[in-house]
């Protein structure tokens, strides 16, 4: 009886194999079909979805008019750090458009998919748009919060995510730190005091920026949300105009989300020219207009002027360079034993 049984087992195993090969050949057919049209994969971070949806349509029309080739840009969105990790692990991005230069640096250093000097290859540190940290307050600003010093008043509830886990929260933290440094007599110790007081007014430390926005907007917790300007506008747009106000503090920080060609992937796909043109198109007035309409700050002076009333004035706009770059700022403030740990342990 046993030999008979083993024969049937063999047959079963054969069937398994047949099914497996059927699957893989179907996969081949699918990829062969995709190769017939020009296509790009843009691996981006969470809040850029609508921006790139509109930009991709504009670029496709532009490319068709110029070369006659139909181009389809595929998008992938998730947290910036996770996306960098996926590209390192083999997600075949022709271009990456992430939140932090450090994330693209890690693709360059861990997987050598692009040269280390990638950020010098496009104008303005390879960031065609910027954003800044603002205060999102409840309608009419009932607690009268106008600048950073108002946030440490007793009883004010500030919503910001945890800078240990959230990139956005680090910008908030540095903006607050920078404001304290810019006060008369400001130094590292007064800044640490100020930021310590600020974090004592934070009732919930969410792990990510979207989580904090949900806490503030959906759950109605807190008096002020420290947020990206584009996120703040999006929250207002989603919950109906007039539900919240945006307040511009006297000191804030300029974030420059960078874009880059992933050389090795694009070369393998034969899309280097297309991908380069795609990124350069971000700097044209048409694209800058789309950028402004999606609440990111454009680089183009004319477009900025047209949308001037949307982008409020910040007297002192710091940048990450003022903190010695991300490597230094990260080690000083957010690494284990950094200023954030000391502040939080002091509680």
């Amino acid at each position: 009886m046993n030999p008979l049984h083993s024969r049937s087992t063999l047959l079963l195993a054969g069937l398994c194999l047949a099914l497996l090969t059927a699957c893989s050949s179907r996969q081949d057919a699918a990829s062969a079909g995709a190769a017939a049209t020009a296509s790009l994969l843009n691996v981006s971070y969470d809040p850029t979805r609508e921006l790139y949806e509109q930009f991709n349509a504009a670029f496709a029309a532009h490319w068709k008019a110029q070369t006659g080739v139909e181009v389809r840009v595929r998008q992938s969105h998730a947290g910036s750090g996770k996306q960098a990790r996926s590209v390192i692990d083999g997600l075949e991005a022709d271009v990456v458009t992430l939140a932090l230069a450090g994330d693209i640096d890690s693709i360059a250093s861990n997987a050598q998919l692009l040269p280390a000097n990638w950020q010098t290859r496009l104008p303005q540190n390879s960031s065609p748009y910027t954003s800044t940290i603002v205060f999102l307050v409840r309608r009419g600003n009932p607690k009268r919060l106008f600048d950073w010093n108002d946030l440490v008043r007793p009883g004010i509830k500030v919503i910001t995510p945890n800078p240990k886990t959230s990139g956005g929260a680090r910008w908030n933290y540095l903006a607050a730190w920078g404001w304290a440094l810019h006060q008369p007599g400001g130094n590292a110790s007064t800044a640490a005091d100020y930021v310590g007081q600020l974090y004592r007014n934070v009732p919930v430390l969410d792990s990510g920026a979207r989580g904090s926005t949900t806490t503030f907007v959906q759950r109605g917790i807190g008096d002020v949300l420290l947020a990206w300007e584009n996120e703040a506008y999006l929250a207002i747009k989603e919950s109906g105009p007039g539900s919240f106000d945006i307040v511009y503090p006297s000191v804030s920080i300029l974030a420059e989300p960078p874009v880059a060609l992933v050389d090795k992937v694009a070369a393998a796909h034969g899309t280097t020219d297309l991908a380069t043109a795609y990124l350069q198109y971000l700097y044209t007035p048409e694209a800058q207009e789309i950028i402004a309409r999606n609440y990111f700050r454009p680089r183009d002076a004319d477009v900025t002027k047209r949308h001037a009333e949307q982008f409020g004035q910040v007297n002192t706009m710091l940048s990450i360079a003022d903190f010695g770059g991300w490597a230094k700022a990260g080690a000083e403030h957010f690494a284990d034993g950094g200023s954030f740990d000391r502040i939080y342990r002091a509680d």
């Binding site: 893989s24 996969q27 996926s86 390192i88 692990d89 083999g90 075949e92 861990n110 997987a111």
Partner: peptide
């Protein structure tokens, strides 16, 4: 994955496994 055990070999032979 691209930096995993079988990923590099599979990649060279044009097979995509992860992210597909």
């Amino acid at each position: 994955g691209a930096r995993g055990w079988l990923g590099p070999w599979l990649g060279e032979h044009g097979y995509k496994v992860i992210f597909a």
